[in-house]
């Protein structure tokens, strides 16, 4: 730590496992707010849209929302509030 440590290698060089605080659910969510996401419900229905915001219950506000059932668009909503208990997962629709 005392000597001038070289800058970290530019990724890909199999980084050591990060400490438990980074990569936490909160950090993930900070990274995806404002981005296009896929929200999968436990029923299997997907909602694709721009993540406006969410809260501690995983309640979600989405913009430009498309409802996908079995790969086909079944509905479109300008805004959508999704109650968090129905959420199975959130993933980024594009590379982060």
């Amino acid at each position: 730590m005392s000597d001038a440590s070289p800058p970290p290698p530019p990724a890909e060089a199999s980084p050591p496992p990060p400490p438990s605080t980074s990569g936490s659910p909160t950090d993930f969510l900070k990274g995806v707010v404002g981005k296009r996401v896929v929200v999968r419900l436990t029923s299997g229905v997907d909602y694709r849209g721009v993540l406006s915001c969410l809260d501690g219950y995983m309640n979600i506000a989405l913009e430009q929302t498309e409802e996908h059932v079995n790969g086909t668009v079944t509905n479109r909503y300008g805004d959508a509030f999704i109650r968090g208990n129905n959420v199975l997962y959130i993933s980024a629709a594009e590379a982060l």
Binding site: S24, P25, D27, F28, M58, L88, Y89, I90, S91, L96
Partner: peptide
């Protein structure tokens, strides 16, 4: 609640869907 990378979903029939780069899985389930 779990953050995962390069995720494959499975059900009783086997793998389902494409690999998901990164996701937050709800802890409730």
């Amino acid at each position: 609640n779990v953050v995962l990378e390069n995720v494959q979903e499975y059900d009783s029939d086997g793998p389902k869907g494409k690999i998901i780069k990164k996701m937050l899985l709800n802890g409730g389930l």
